[in-house]
Write a protein that binds this DNA or RNA. Sequence first.
DNA 1: AAATTAAATGCTTTTTATTGCATGAAATGA
DNA 2: TCATTTCATGCAATAAAAAGCATTTAATTT
Lengths: 248, 248
Amino acid sequence: MLKKERQAFILHKVNLHNRVVCGDLSLEINVSEDTIRRDLQELSDEGKLIKAHGGALSKSFYNSFNSSKVYSLENKKCIAQKAATLIKDGMFVLTTGGTTIIELARALPENLQATFITGSLPAALEYLHHPTIEVILIGDKVSKNSQITVGGEAISKIKQIKADICFVGTNALDAEHGLTDNDWEVVQVKKAMIESSAQVVSLTIGEKINTCQRIQVCDITAIDVLVTELEADSVILQPYLKKGLKIL
Amino acid sequence: MLKKERQAFILHKVNLHNRVVCGDLSLEINVSEDTIRRDLQELSDEGKLIKAHGGALSKSFYNSFNSSKVYSLENKKCIAQKAATLIKDGMFVLTTGGTTIIELARALPENLQATFITGSLPAALEYLHHPTIEVILIGDKVSKNSQITVGGEAISKIKQIKADICFVGTNALDAEHGLTDNDWEVVQVKKAMIESSAQVVSLTIGEKINTCQRIQVCDITAIDVLVTELEADSVILQPYLKKGLKIL
DNA sequence: AAATTAAATGCTTTTTATTGCATGAAATGA
DNA sequence: TCATTTCATGCAATAAAAAGCATTTAATTT
């Protein structure tokens, strides 16, 4: 087995199980533990997993518990600044949840008069801090992981709305597979929000671009504007420009 | 189990329950208490939790007690303890918002399996920390002052529910004028909740008893149980006993 | 194709990390 | 106050990582 092939296998395994052990991998791939350790070290250096004594953990698993501070906060602040310029007085704004959306809430200009509609509890609380914006909460069962409301009630309420703009916190974006996520219920809500909005904006930090998750939210063409912390003429963004997305 | 994995598990647990104990973790993860202690020490050094004698506390929990001080907190904790005993497995529980309700959320027994329905954002977030209870959020416009959803949508949703018990955070209570409040929209929501519940419980700190506000929520007879920090045979409570309320 | 170079891998040894246990000190609660 | 629990520390056993070296494999040049 080639080195790259082996590392891809390890990465796949760690992302699937959230955890791998040197010994197991050594037996499975039939190379020495030294080699496995070297692979883990390299993957760790590339920031693709979290190395631990005796094995490794997936980034998502590790970050979901260990990041007391928001991951990649500076980039998210930058994205929030850019995204905030898209919102005009009087707009009806649909938003999902997620840390980037929270930053958006904090980046809103002080005198903005708009109506924000969301199913995210943390986002709603953040919007409430703003003096002039109205907050509409989508009701339904609250998902413990994502702290947003999910379910049929929520979706049917969203479908009754005709919003001007929708901000989607993005889990994974790929020119081929579009916007993807890994929680079925959250995906349903995002889908509904996208359908109910005149304009769809994806807030995506650079490292999530050209990545893919299990469940598709929408095709890449359903997105109108892509906001990242990168420069608009960045090479990595060219495929999206070609697909007709506006880059901010 | 890998060391980092174990520490992630501990963090997960402490964030979920707000509190962990060395002994429990030792049994659960099957390592010595020394190891747990060392983990807690490291996590504490990294600023990810607050170490305490015998275990650790989550940062958010710790901060919520040391920064923003809740008025008459001890009394509210006492009320919450008493009120929590009224909730049984399988119940549908309607709650309003308010600091006493937040304390109730924190006083819920760890293994309680119930469904909590509320329009209060802070209360919903607090319920989410609990491992086994389901949270249903009532959607509508969010009131900036009270951080609960108010309006026709919210009320009609509440009316569709038939709950076992309803906990009302109380602003003012008087044997003559009943339960009163000063926010028209909040009153409408409370009214709907009371109508939709088989049993109505008022959580009231002593100093709000025999006080009155502008708008009536319900007559005193609509309340089934009155929970206060006072002794049940306290003189001040006698008028309510006579009106047929159960005192806890 | 042969020779050379570079990279990858496995093995051994040394160094470091992790863990549990024992001890005495400190904190807690009756 | 005293009894109990919890903590901190040092120590030893074990496991894992790192470093160095030898061998093999792949790539490049001649």
